[in-house]
Simulated scan of single mutants.
Amino acid sequence: MDLTILSMFIIMSLIIVMILFALTTIIKAYPAIAIKLEVSGYILFAISLGWFFINDDLINMSANSDLLILNEKMYDLWHFNEDLYEYIESGNIDEIREKHHSMTKHIQQLEEGAEGLKRQERTSGIINGVLFALSSLLVAAGRGKDLILEIDKKKSKK
């Protein structure tokens, strides 16, 4: 496992534990808020489910964009190689350079245009993950109210 991924996992785990600790502290102080946290979690889960479909569409659009760029590159290379024989026969090296330059510029423009879609895909994935994690935390905290209060009762009896 990559060190960066492992460190991200550890950091995210610590953040989740801190949020759960904060939520349990809030529930201990205000037990009536647990149902509101749980309902909020279910609402966020529904939003996360809807966002999942948006994210899935962006992933598909990005994959199609990659295929389109690959197709355009192949098309450009095909035409460049097709015209290469004519350029060699004529002996005009400047014409070959110009064709190569325009082909390279066209490919760069295609890749730059797809970069915005890639950024949207990454951002959408992050938003989806955060919504899902937060909804899970809120539902778990809301559902855990009885458990939290039962543990507090047992501690106070001792």
Rank of each mutant, 00 (worst) to 15 (best):
M1N: 02
D2N: 04
L3T: 05
L3N: 05
L3K: 02
T4Y: 01
T4F: 05
I5S: 06
L6N: 00
L6G: 00
I10Q: 04
I10E: 03
I11Y: 01
M12V: 06
L14S: 09
I15G: 08
I15L: 15
I19F: 07
I19Y: 03
I19M: 13
F21D: 13
A22L: 11
T24L: 06
I26Q: 07
K28A: 10
Y30Q: 13
Y30L: 13
P31N: 05
A34M: 07
A34K: 05
V39L: 12
V39D: 03
Y42F: 14
Y42M: 12
I43Y: 09
L44W: 04
I47Y: 04
I47C: 01
S48T: 08
G50V: 08
F52H: 11
I54L: 04
N55V: 02
I59S: 05
S62G: 09
N64L: 14
S65A: 15
L68S: 14
I69V: 14
I69H: 04
I69S: 07
I69R: 05
E72A: 14
K73S: 10
K73F: 07
M74E: 10
M74G: 06
Y75M: 10
Y75P: 04
H79S: 12
F80C: 02
D83K: 13
D83E: 12
Y87R: 08
Y87V: 02
I88H: 00
S90I: 09
S90C: 01
G91W: 07
E95P: 00
E95I: 09
E95W: 10
I96S: 01
E98V: 06
E98I: 09
E98Q: 07
K99Y: 14
S102R: 13
T104Y: 11
T104P: 05
K105F: 15
I107H: 15
I107P: 10
Q109D: 10
Q109G: 02
E111L: 03
G113M: 01
E115Y: 13
E115Q: 10
E115R: 12
K118T: 10
Q120T: 08
E121W: 10
E121R: 15
T123Q: 11
T123K: 12
S124D: 01
I127E: 06
I127P: 07
N128R: 09
N128P: 02
G129H: 02
G129A: 06
V130R: 02
V130T: 08
L131C: 12
F132K: 14
A133F: 03
L134W: 11
L138T: 14
V139A: 15
V139K: 13
A140I: 13
A140N: 04
A140G: 07
R143D: 11
R143E: 14
K145M: 15
K145N: 12
K145Q: 15
D146N: 14
I148P: 02
I148A: 14
L149Y: 03
L149V: 11
L149A: 09
I151S: 01
K153F: 03
K155N: 03
